[in-house]
Simulated scan of single mutants.
Amino acid sequence: MAGNPDFDLFQLPAEHQELRAAIRGLSEKEIAPYAKDVDEKERFPQEALDALVASGFNAIHVPEEFDGQGADSVATCIVIEEVARVCGSSSLIPAVNKLGTMGLILSGSDELKRQVLPSIAAGEAMASYALSEREAGSDAASMRTRAKADGDDWVLNGGKCWITNGGVSTWYTVMAVTDPDKGANGISAFIVHKDDPGFSIAGYEHKLGIKGSPTAELAFENCRIPGDRIIGEPGTGFKTALQTLDHTRPTIGAQAVGIAQGALDVAIDYVKERKQFGKRIADFQAIQFMVADMAMRLEAARLMVYTAAARAERGEKNLGFISSASKCFASDVAMDVTTDAVQLLGGAG
């Protein structure tokens, strides 16, 4: 599972198949029973976090030298996929732990990694990623959050929005402008701790789904952090942000694949049991065609996600297209498959 980028095109290695079996068993036993309650009450899935931490699946991507398992990108996607199969909110625990630490892993100093990563691996802390702002979503380079050097410290002012797992995470990778005259080359990346003075949670979003994962707005009011909490050199933050997304978009594709798989599994079980006109609806050819199309699109999405993850693991250049495409395609497939599943369940949908 650790550091193996050589994947057969049509068959995952045995260790990845064993990993899937282990995380599927855990998910069905210790996460699925709470999924409905998590969604209905819009509460954080603490049971899932406890189960993932106890089993070591909360952040398997953390390198071994920082007390992690050093799992490769495909293994991480498998974990996220299998958790998402039973609970979309819970799958964002391992997914966002990777998103929130990837920039640090790629570009941070060993000293800063030692400050942060062991606590993530141990399950003592979680991480989030803070790039977007209300007026700087897709156009992230137009962000307004500022960071200024003050003695040995940095002082941040501004805000970030749509931050997944905001409020439950301990560490936040935050992008801020350090030189306004340089545009994207004037953005730097920092690690902020939830207890840093001047940091606060300004509010939460009300969402249509994935309600167990809080989506928060962050505020920085003269937020003072130690000078060694910058990731890389000043001005390299936007590059770090984009590299982070290249490596982590497949994880959201994996979440989408898992959600779609869960929906397909429910639909197949239902059509095998539901009877109309004297026979199971699974025996009607139109239903069979629909299920086959769902499965076909789902498998294509899964292969695209795994391919993107494997290419990221190999450190290939120009990951932007395949990582973005895998996330987009898998998300579209999840929408199609879940919608079709609702139709197959009829009135029970």
Rank of each mutant, 00 (worst) to 15 (best):
A286V: 14
G320Y: 15
T101A: 09
A219W: 08
G227M: 01
T339S: 08
D110V: 02
S188Q: 02
E64N: 08
D293H: 14
Q17R: 15
A348N: 05
S27I: 01
N4C: 10
N157E: 06
I187M: 07
T173Q: 15
G100A: 04
V79S: 01
K275F: 14
M294R: 01
G183Q: 02
M175I: 14
E299P: 03
Q69N: 06
E205H: 14
F277V: 12
V38P: 04
I225Q: 08
F66D: 14
A267F: 01
V342C: 07
V177Y: 00
R146A: 09
I120F: 07
E82T: 05
T145N: 02
A136C: 02
M335T: 14
G237L: 03
E64V: 13
V174A: 07
G151T: 05
E47H: 14
V192G: 10
A286M: 11
P214E: 04
V337E: 01
I191R: 06
G183M: 04
R24W: 04
G320C: 09
I231V: 14
G158Y: 03
I105E: 15
N185A: 08
L99R: 08
L264W: 02
N97L: 03
P45K: 00
Q343L: 13
M143D: 04
A282W: 15
N97V: 07
F199R: 02
E217V: 09
M143F: 04
L303P: 08
G235V: 01
C77G: 03
A147M: 00
M296P: 09
I252T: 12
A14W: 11
E81Q: 07
Y34M: 10
V291S: 08
M304H: 12
L264T: 10
A189F: 13
V257P: 05
T170W: 09
T307L: 15
V271L: 11
M1D: 12
K279E: 13
Q46L: 05
T178I: 14
D332Q: 11
G320V: 12
K182Y: 08
V337R: 00
L131K: 11
D332A: 07
L49K: 15
I231W: 06
L92R: 04
A14F: 13
A84W: 02
E82Y: 10
E205F: 06
Y270K: 13
I23T: 14
E221S: 07
S138Q: 14
D265E: 15
K29D: 13
G227L: 02
V174W: 09
A147I: 00
E111H: 10
V192S: 06
I287C: 11
V291C: 05
V168R: 04
G166C: 06
L19A: 06
W171D: 05
N318W: 07
R249H: 15
A59Y: 03
V177Q: 03
A14P: 10
L117H: 12
M296D: 15
A189C: 15
P13L: 10
G183A: 04
Q69V: 06
G349P: 00
I93F: 05
Q285Y: 13
E217H: 11
E47M: 06
A334P: 01
A260N: 00
A308T: 08
Q343M: 13
G159C: 07
R20D: 11
Q46I: 06
E124V: 10
A267V: 00
D152H: 08
G258P: 02
G262L: 02
S73G: 15
T76E: 15
A122L: 04
F44R: 10
G253E: 04
S213P: 07
Q11A: 15
N4G: 11
V168Q: 07
